[in-house]
Computed example of a mutant assay.
Amino acid sequence: MSTLENAFDVTLQNRKKLYKLLKETPKEVLLQIPQGFRNNIWWNIAHVVVTQQLLVYKFSGQPIRINEVLVEKFKKGTIPDGTGTEEEISQVADLLLSTVQWMQEDYGNGLFDSYTEYTTSANVTLSSVEDAIIFNVYHEGLHLGAILSLLKVVSQVRQL
């Protein structure tokens, strides 16, 4: 398996975990922003979908494949307002796996033939779509860690 095939597989496995969390976690838990935190589980899950589209599609000069409203609400620098409609949650659940499959198919079809260099907030410079796909694995791992921390804190609060 090539490094890139592995990156697609790791992303898909992570997204399956996020999908399960999104579907099985009560909405009030998803939306809760515990004291000391800036965001919630819901924001983190939607944020990884948005960021993958921006890193891979936008900087490759391709149209993103998700609703622009989601981008504006969950891109880097946004803060959740503590809400999430059933429609939004369902939409993001549907996008968790499909966006990875589209990315892999589009990459295989040679869609990403150029890339605008971008330096991330982690001070990593992405010069190609391959860089973006690999960096995205790291980014999603950070957010899975944040989600697991939030889940632990929120679960403890709920038991009190």
Rank of each mutant, 00 (worst) to 15 (best):
12 L>N: 03
99 T>S: 08
13 Q>L: 03
43 W>A: 05
139 H>S: 09
121 S>D: 14
160 L>Y: 11
68 E>Y: 07
145 G>P: 04
156 Q>N: 15
80 P>R: 05
128 S>Q: 15
41 I>N: 05
121 S>L: 03
15 R>E: 01
127 S>F: 04
71 V>A: 02
28 E>H: 15
86 E>S: 03
115 Y>S: 10
59 F>R: 07
157 V>P: 03
104 Q>S: 09
2 S>R: 08
144 L>D: 07
24 E>W: 00
51 T>K: 12
29 V>A: 13
20 K>G: 02
11 T>D: 09
4 L>P: 05
49 V>M: 00
57 Y>D: 08
20 K>E: 08
22 L>P: 12
6 N>Q: 10
9 D>N: 13
113 D>M: 02
18 L>I: 08
136 N>L: 02
135 F>A: 07
139 H>E: 09
81 D>G: 06
31 L>E: 11
53 Q>P: 00
126 L>E: 09
136 N>M: 05
133 I>E: 03
126 L>M: 12
91 Q>S: 11
46 A>Y: 05
109 N>M: 02
20 K>T: 11
49 V>T: 10
89 I>E: 13
87 E>M: 02
94 D>V: 06
24 E>G: 07
111 L>G: 04
2 S>M: 08
24 E>N: 14
102 W>G: 05
33 I>C: 03
130 E>L: 06
68 E>V: 05
31 L>Q: 13
49 V>G: 01
75 K>W: 01
11 T>W: 02
160 L>N: 15
77 G>K: 05
121 S>G: 12
3 T>H: 11
57 Y>V: 11
127 S>N: 15
18 L>S: 07
13 Q>V: 08
109 N>V: 01
34 P>W: 12
160 L>T: 13
82 G>D: 08
81 D>R: 01
135 F>V: 07
69 V>K: 14
39 N>Y: 06
115 Y>T: 11
30 L>N: 13
11 T>I: 04
110 G>W: 03
132 A>M: 07
105 E>T: 10
28 E>D: 15
20 K>Q: 12
21 L>T: 15
121 S>Y: 06
63 P>A: 09
43 W>Q: 11
29 V>P: 10
108 G>E: 02
91 Q>I: 00
118 Y>R: 13
141 G>Q: 01
100 V>N: 12
96 L>E: 06
147 I>G: 00
7 A>Q: 04
120 T>Q: 06
77 G>I: 02
112 F>E: 13
89 I>T: 14
140 E>N: 08
20 K>W: 00
74 F>E: 03
39 N>A: 11
126 L>R: 13
86 E>V: 05
119 T>Y: 02
4 L>E: 06
40 N>E: 10
120 T>A: 04
100 V>F: 00
154 V>W: 04
13 Q>K: 08
8 F>H: 03
152 K>R: 15
147 I>H: 03
94 D>H: 09
34 P>M: 12
4 L>N: 11
143 H>V: 01
33 I>L: 06
109 N>Y: 00
111 L>M: 09
157 V>W: 14
125 T>I: 09
114 S>G: 09
106 D>C: 10
100 V>D: 07
157 V>K: 15
5 E>R: 06
134 I>F: 01
58 K>E: 14
148 L>A: 00
20 K>Y: 01
67 N>W: 09
121 S>Q: 11
103 M>P: 04
131 D>W: 04
1 M>F: 01
97 L>R: 08
